[in-house]
Design a protein around this nucleic acid. Structure first.
Lengths: 225, 225
DNA sequence: CCAAAAGTGTTAATTGTACACCCATGC
DNA sequence: GCATGGGTGTACAATTAACACTTTTGG
């Protein structure tokens, strides 16, 4: 058995669509490039895959370096192979999307704080490379995913109220959802559990607090849009 | 702007899960390896990505070479990055799955006819590399996909009968489906059109022939399992 | 005219949708 | 005690699931 001959291989990068939800806004994390191509333009954060690294490790490295974040939910999105996608040469990108709670993240801790910013997903600047296409696919995937799997919890605090979860869904799906029917479906799925406590401090009735049921591995629900 | 420095990059291969449906059996195409590793073992067909090639081009090249097939339906599945997945060295695989009609394909036309064979998906031999994982994901994706999008037609003849389509679904989903409810859902989706003709030659009542509605771009149905 | 397979329709059960009232809180 | 937002239930509509009879064909 021979090892691989030293063929020329395309560069292999991992690009990340990092979603954050805060103040009823769904945002995505962008990086301001300091070098050509797309100097001073905005792009998705990413990095080249190191030789013995797995995609997830590359993602974690980027998230750690640029945001000081650990333990982030992520999922492989798609691999992009358009030959002209990088003007520097042939480069393949494996895209991942990540869901983070910006409140728990200190961008300031990263080494590139000045170059990183959250953008509301409806007000994105023009993106370099093919990153707009990657972003679009990520939004589509996220929208599809939350309708049948509880990924939304990744964007919220450990404990959250039903109205918070409801607003998150309305924001991501960009629609209105009857709150009473929403509550019933989510609770029926058993993916969330009441903590038995209420959020104090509101000027009105104190809403019940819930938490994600991590025990539950297999179940399903369906939020229709 | 500098071109990429000559970093070392992992090898990049495309692996294909080719599904074929024939005689009420769903099969997958495997290749018998002549070289180590996994000599004399069975693996998914695949090839290394050439420098200016897109994934789909690589797929087409493999399908043409090994099966003499053109114009095959294919879809990107997932990218596999386990460091030990290839004993020869670091290699990334971008997996695609393809749907073909074996009746329209002459494996004999390929240059490697003796090394290629169809296997019923329930009776697979042990597979080399991480190809069993790739295959498993492909089956899962195909099952999911046909419940809401008409990919099944790719596996059938240009014209087909309702009982044929019904059997295909039962075979792929490995379940029984009420044929009357199935017919209604498929017809309601408008993805198939009656040709107005019937299949002759059967010893019983001649079934109506249908064809895929290529005009219809956006629609949806839902076959529940 | 009989056996085998294909076409068709109806009813009950389940699920989804629309909608309104009561409750707790702070001021 | 009132304004605000959160909790809950119910009736109607739509969809899905279960099911049986009729039709066509070849032998």
């Amino acid at each position: 058995m021979k090892p691989f001959s030293s063929y020329q291989n395309p560069s292999l990068a991992v690009d990340l669509v990092v979603f954050g939800y805060s103040k009823q806004q769904l945002s995505v994390l962008l990086l301001n490039r300091k070098e050509a191509p797309y100097q001073d333009g905005w792009v998705l954060p990413g990095a080249f895959l190191q030789m013995e690294e797995r995609f997830r490790d590359t993602c974690s490295r980027v998230l750690k370096t640029k945001l000081g974040m650990d333990d982030v939910y992520m999922e492989q999105l798609y691999s992009f192979d358009e030959p002209e996608r990088d003007p520097r040469g042939r480069a393949i990108a494996v895209a991942y999307y990540a869901l983070v709670n910006p409140a728990r993240v200190a961008i300031a801790a990263g080494s590139m704080a000045n170059d990183v910013a959250w953008f509301n997903i409806k007000e994105l600047p023009e993106l370099g490379f093919d990153h707009r296409a990657i972003f679009d696919m990520a939004v589509q995937r996220l929208r599809s995913k939350i309708t049948y799997f509880p990924v939304g919890f990744e964007l919220l605090d450990e404990q959250f109220t039903m109205p918070e979860l409801h607003e998150l869904y309305e924001c991501i799906l960009d629609t209105t959802i009857d709150r009473r029917n929403f509550r019933r479906k989510i609770l029926d799925s058993a993916y969330i559990i009441s903590t038995g406590t209420k959020r104090e401090g509101a000027q009105n009735r104190h809403p019940d607090l819930y938490t994600f049921n991590k025990q539950l591995k297999q179940n399903s629900f369906q939020i229709n849009v």
